[in-house]
Computed example of a mutant assay.
Amino acid sequence: MHLSDLPPGQRDDWTIDQQWDRYTPEQHQVWATLFERQTKLLEGRACDEFLAGMRALPIAPDKIPDFRQLSAVLKQHTGWEVVAVPGLVPDEVFFEHLANRRFPAGQFIREASQLDYLQEPDVFHDVFGHVPLLMNPIIADYIQAYGVGGLRAKEKGVLDLLARVYWYTVEFGLVEQKDGLRLYGAGIVSSYTESIFALDDPSPNRVRFDLPRVMQTDYRIDDFQETYFVIRHLDELLQLAHTDFAPLYEQVAQRPVLQPGTILPQDQLVHRGIGTYHNAKR
């Protein structure tokens, strides 16, 4: 797409002005409703690093955050900034932003009737779910490395394999702490219902993270996950950032794609799910 073809206000890197002053009182109220119920739920559920990032950022309970204020704090700590986009962006645009420590966040917010499910990520998912962990140096480096790796994977035609790693870590990952399993994936911490399901429900599998295994495993985009992968600590993600994926792509490409609920004999199980939730829907 050429710059002349872009919608008004959209730049050739797909960024737009957030136009914070144009949010309505009703939109701020949607944020306030989502923020209040989610923060009450996440104490004792979200990992310590997420909660610390939330406390350190200018994220207020009663109004949509201003990306300029968020970026000012992030830049001081980890060199990241938040840039506004109108919604989902092409893969290469997304990776280019991440590779340069720019997190593209949807500037719109869901309707009051869509509190529990939204097909396209909005400002609550992107900012509440993702940005607090960008204050953590490990996550900051990991997501930048993912952006660089994503550009390479797209060139090699193996983007689906790398996308599964992002999905099962950044979006839907669990981590062990001294006081038990905790959430760090943005898709979970920004979802009231999945925050409960991922930790408390006996239905899903919780499997120790193994990189080739994750690259081989398909995922659900329309419902709760059937399997969550568990890392022992966030440092594991930093190890991934320094991993040479090229030989893994060749290795995993020869294997069959695993369905989301599959358990392998060699899996290290944190919890074997009983599958009742998804079986009832089949």
Rank of each mutant, 00 (worst) to 15 (best):
135 M>N: 05
154 K>P: 06
236 E>K: 02
102 R>L: 00
219 Y>R: 09
120 E>M: 00
187 G>A: 03
104 P>G: 05
233 H>F: 01
244 D>I: 04
186 A>R: 14
168 Y>V: 00
105 A>M: 07
195 S>P: 11
205 N>Q: 08
152 R>P: 03
128 F>R: 12
163 A>P: 02
110 R>Y: 02
138 I>E: 05
121 P>V: 06
115 L>G: 08
229 F>Q: 04
108 F>D: 04
240 L>D: 13
142 Y>Q: 05
153 A>F: 12
192 Y>M: 15
229 F>T: 05
149 G>R: 09
152 R>C: 08
198 A>R: 11
185 G>P: 05
126 D>R: 05
127 V>P: 01
159 L>P: 02
191 S>E: 07
231 I>M: 11
215 M>L: 11
154 K>N: 10
211 L>Q: 14
108 F>E: 12
115 L>R: 11
244 D>R: 10
230 V>D: 02
112 A>K: 13
105 A>S: 12
162 L>K: 15
130 H>Y: 08
218 D>R: 09
192 Y>Q: 14
188 I>L: 11
172 F>N: 03
176 E>K: 14
235 D>E: 06
124 F>W: 07
184 Y>W: 12
184 Y>R: 15
155 E>P: 09
183 L>K: 06
182 R>V: 11
173 G>Q: 06
243 T>S: 04
225 Q>S: 01
155 E>K: 15
181 L>T: 08
122 D>C: 08
238 L>V: 03
237 L>Y: 10
234 L>S: 09
193 T>F: 14
188 I>Q: 01
168 Y>A: 00
185 G>V: 02
100 N>F: 04
203 S>C: 07
131 V>F: 05
149 G>F: 15
242 H>Q: 12
119 Q>A: 01
225 Q>L: 00
206 R>T: 03
244 D>W: 07
131 V>Y: 04
145 A>P: 03
233 H>C: 03
233 H>Y: 04
170 V>H: 10
174 L>Y: 06
158 V>K: 13
167 W>F: 15
134 L>N: 04
213 R>Y: 00
204 P>Y: 08
237 L>I: 07
177 Q>Y: 08
224 F>L: 07
209 F>N: 01
179 D>W: 06
104 P>C: 08
162 L>R: 15
242 H>R: 13
168 Y>P: 04
202 P>G: 00
155 E>G: 06
153 A>P: 11
139 I>N: 02
206 R>Q: 05
156 K>I: 07
201 D>V: 12
144 Q>S: 00
